[in-house]
């Protein structure tokens, strides 16, 4: 039969010799292999102290963005909710009142914005659908929780810190990816 890779080896079906039947050389060989591994460099990453770098295309928890003046970008158009294949996003729109210009960028804003992290599949389609650059997927992932309700993230969980009031935390929340672009 024509082999595909020429790497196939026929199985050796000869009866074992006396030395092979003793098994001791084979056992010694195996012990040698395990001993070699004993001194090898360990592949473990000690998690809380050491963290693996994320890939540049990693899609983690969502974040609701603000503009440079600290106003929320989201206008509650609902495109993200439509785009979401898992139907994880719900929102309620509200009209911007007089005197709230420093809070919301557009005249309409999301009064309630919830993402169910148990439903979310972190596909990033909401990010692509958003016309206002209001939603991004960050480099963190959802922490464990004791209750299912804990995985429904509201607006205060999702909003990025205000760049004016808390600039340090804002920079931290931006992560390494934004800086590069």
């Amino acid at each position: 039969m024509q082999t595909l890779t020429n790497r196939a080896k026929p199985v050796d079906r000869r009866p074992m010799t006396v030395l092979e039947k003793l098994y001791l050389p084979a056992i010694a060989k195996g012990m040698g292999i395990t001993l070699k591994h004993f001194f090898k460099k360990k592949v473990t990453i000690q998690y809380p102290e050491e963290k693996r770098p994320f890939s540049p295309v990693f899609r983690g928890l969502h974040i609701l963005n603000r503009d440079e003046e600290g106003r929320e970008r989201c206008t509650a158009c609902g495109l993200c909710a439509v785009a979401c294949p898992a139907e994880a996003i719900t929102m309620e729109a509200a009209e911007r009142m007089e005197g709230e210009e420093n809070l919301y960028r557009e005249e309409k804003y999301a009064a309630k914005y919830e993402i169910n992290m148990l439903r979310c599949i972190f596909c990033g389609l909401c990010e692509e659908a958003c016309p206002k650059d209001a939603i991004y997927l960050s480099e963190t992932f959802a922490p464990a929780n004791f209750k299912r309700e804990g995985f429904i993230y509201g607006k205060n969980d999702l909003l990025i810190p205000d760049p004016k009031k808390e600039p340090e935390q804002y920079q931290k929340a931006l992560g390494s990816r934004v800086k590069k672009s």
């Binding site: 591994h37 004993f38 360990k42 473990t44």
Partner: peptide
């Protein structure tokens, strides 16, 4: 510990 070291972990 030995089990870990033989299996390339700590």
């Amino acid at each position: 510990k030995v089990a870990g070291y033989i299996q390339d972990r700590y």
